[in-house]
């Protein structure tokens, strides 16, 4: 369950930014999670309530944007959609696809009060 420590990082980052802004509390946190990243969004949601308790982010809503995966296939010479990290190219079946998007793991923005 490394989602627990990732969630601790999300809360730390949000609380730090909220303190810098002089906020009283955080009401919403928006995070980007790539479809090919090693993170289960449901687990993040599950952990968030527990980890944020007693912090400025307690009670905040965690919104997870799932970004689609994509990769560059040198054989097809174009960007193709990827549903698995090391999947074959959906067009030519080759395994030389280099992932170009989908492993994002980022706190994008938050709403504070």
């Amino acid at each position: 369950m490394h989602e627990m420590s990732l969630t601790e990082s999300i809360v730390e980052i949000a609380v730090e930014a909220a303190q810098k802004e002089g906020a009283q509390r955080v009401t919403r946190v928006l995070v980007d999670v790539g479809a090919l990243s090693h993170v289960e969004p449901e687990a993040l949601e599950f952990c968030f309530a527990a980890v944020s308790r007693g912090t400025l982010a307690e009670g905040a809503r965690l919104e997870i944007a799932r970004l689609p995966g994509a990769g560059w296939c040198p054989d097809c010479g174009k960007t193709v959609a990827l549903t698995e990290r090391f999947a074959a190219c959906p067009e030519c079946g080759g395994f030389r696809v280099q992932m170009t998007a989908g492993d994002e793991l980022k706190v994008r923005e938050m709403e504070i009060a």
């Binding site: 999300i10 906020a23 793991l105 706190v107 994008r108 923005e109 504070i112």
Partner: peptide
């Protein structure tokens, strides 16, 4: 926990930090 005082209205803050 961590606590900090401060007063403001609801607003969005861009963070853009890697988890």
């Amino acid at each position: 926990g961590a606590h900090a005082p401060g007063v403001s209205q609801e607003r969005m803050v861009a963070i853009e930090r890697d988890i």
